[in-house]
Simulated assay, not measured.
Amino acid sequence: MGNDRVLCLTIYKSEAGARLLRERYLEALRAWPGAREEVRVPTPEGETFVVVAGPAGAPPLVLLHGSGSNAAEWAPRIPALTGRFRVHAVDIIGEPGLSAETRPPLGSDRYARWLDAVLDHFGVPRAAFLTSSFGGWVALDYATRRPERVAALALRCPIGLGPMKKGFVVKAVLLSLLGEKGRRKSVAGTIGEPETSPIVEHQLLVSAHYRYRTGPFPVFGDAALSRLTMPVYAVAGADDAMVDSATTKRRLEAAGAVVDFMPGTGHYIPGSRDLEFLTDAAANGDFTA
Rank of each mutant, 00 (worst) to 15 (best):
G2D: 13
N3K: 07
L7A: 01
C8G: 04
K13W: 00
A18K: 14
R30C: 08
E37D: 15
T43K: 02
P44C: 07
P55H: 04
G66Q: 11
G68L: 11
S69F: 13
I78C: 04
F85P: 12
R86V: 11
V87T: 12
V87Q: 04
E101T: 15
R103P: 13
L106A: 02
L115E: 03
V118K: 02
L119F: 11
G135D: 11
V138K: 02
A143G: 08
P147C: 05
A151C: 06
P158R: 00
G167C: 04
K171G: 13
L174N: 04
S176K: 05
L177D: 05
L178G: 00
S186Q: 02
E201I: 00
Q203D: 08
Q203L: 14
A208Y: 00
A208N: 03
R213V: 10
T214Q: 13
P216I: 00
F217C: 06
P218V: 09
V219F: 03
S226K: 15
R227M: 07
R227I: 13
V232L: 06
V232K: 09
A234G: 13
A236G: 07
A238C: 10
S245H: 07
A246W: 08
T265L: 05
G266K: 03
Y268T: 03
L275F: 03
N284M: 04
